[in-house]
Simulated scan of single mutants.
Amino acid sequence: MTPELKDKIRTVCDKKIAQKGTNVGISFYAFFANKNDNPELLMEAATWWIQTHQLDHFEKATKIKALVL
């Protein structure tokens, strides 16, 4: 996983946890805007989420953050 994606995941998870608490769920789409402006990074996130870790569509942000640390 690229440092860019790791940073993005940590930032988004921290923001969501701060806003909604430790039980907040997210999907890998949370790391991207509605406009697909970086398809390579989106595919990297999807591969990491779906193929590498076989995660459900929604997972707790705390779990995702722990996986990237």
Score class of each variant (00 low, 15 high):
Glu4Asn: 06
Asn34Val: 03
Gln54Met: 08
Gln54Cys: 12
Lys16Asp: 04
Trp49Tyr: 05
Ser27Arg: 14
Asp14Ser: 12
Glu4Arg: 15
Cys13Ala: 10
Leu42Ser: 08
Phe28Ala: 02
Phe31Ala: 07
Ala30Tyr: 09
Thr47Ala: 04
Phe32Glu: 04
Pro39Ser: 05
Ser27Gly: 15
Ala66Pro: 14
Trp48Ile: 12
Thr2His: 01
Leu69Gly: 14
Thr11Val: 10
Leu41Asp: 00
Ala33Val: 10
Asn38Gln: 08
Leu41Arg: 05
Lys6Phe: 07
Thr52Ile: 08
Glu59Tyr: 08
His53Phe: 07
Phe58His: 12
Ile17Arg: 02
Gly21Tyr: 00
Ile17His: 01
Val12Arg: 09
Trp48Val: 13
Ala46Arg: 15
Cys13Lys: 07
Glu40Ala: 13
Lys20Ala: 11
Lys6Asp: 01
Leu41Asn: 02
Lys35Gln: 04
Lys35Val: 12
Ser27Phe: 10
Val24Phe: 00
Ala18Glu: 08
Lys63Glu: 00
Thr47Gln: 05
Cys13Tyr: 07
Gly21Glu: 02
Pro39Val: 06
Ala46Lys: 15
Leu42Pro: 00
Lys15Met: 11
Ala61Asn: 08
Arg10Gly: 00
Lys15Val: 11
Leu55His: 06
Thr52Gln: 12
Leu5Phe: 04
Asn38Asp: 11
Lys35His: 00
Leu55Gln: 05
Ala66Asn: 13
Asn23Met: 09
His57Asp: 08
Asn23Ser: 13
Lys20Phe: 13
Gly21Gln: 04
Thr62Asn: 08
Asp37Trp: 00
Phe28Pro: 03
Met1Asp: 05
Ile17Tyr: 03
Ile64His: 05
Leu41Ser: 07
Gly25Tyr: 10
Ile26Cys: 13
Met43Ala: 08
Asn38Ala: 09
Asp56Thr: 15
Lys8Glu: 08
Val24Arg: 03
Gln19Arg: 10
Lys16Tyr: 09
Ile26Val: 15
Pro3Ile: 10
Leu67Arg: 11
Ala46His: 12
Ile26Asn: 06
Ile9Cys: 05
Trp49Val: 11
Ala66Leu: 11
Asn34Lys: 12
Lys15Phe: 05
Asn36Thr: 04
Leu41Met: 11
Ala45Thr: 09
Met43Gly: 07
Thr2Ile: 03
Leu67Met: 14
Lys65Thr: 10
Lys65Gln: 13
Lys15Ile: 12
Glu4Leu: 11
Gln19Lys: 10
Lys15Asn: 14
Pro3His: 01
Ile26Met: 14
Leu55Met: 14
Asp37Val: 14
Lys35Arg: 09
Gly21Phe: 02
Gly21Asn: 02
Pro39Ile: 03
Ile9Lys: 09
Thr11Leu: 06
Trp49Asp: 06
His57Ala: 06
Thr2Met: 03
Asp56Phe: 10
Ile50Arg: 15
Lys6Met: 07
Pro3Lys: 06
Lys65Trp: 00
Ala61Ile: 13
Ile17Asp: 01
Ala61Gly: 12
Tyr29Asp: 15
Arg10Ser: 09
Thr47Lys: 01
Lys6Gln: 13
Ala61Val: 12
Gln54Phe: 05
Tyr29Gly: 13
Asn38Glu: 00
Val24Glu: 10
Phe28Leu: 09
Met1His: 07
Ala46Met: 10
Ile26Glu: 03
Leu41Gly: 02
Lys16Gln: 14
Val12Ile: 15
Leu55Asp: 03
Asp56Pro: 14
Phe28Gln: 13
Leu5Pro: 02
Asp56Ala: 15
Leu55Glu: 00
Pro3Thr: 12
Val24Lys: 05
Ser27Leu: 09
Val68Pro: 09
Asp56Cys: 13
Pro39His: 01
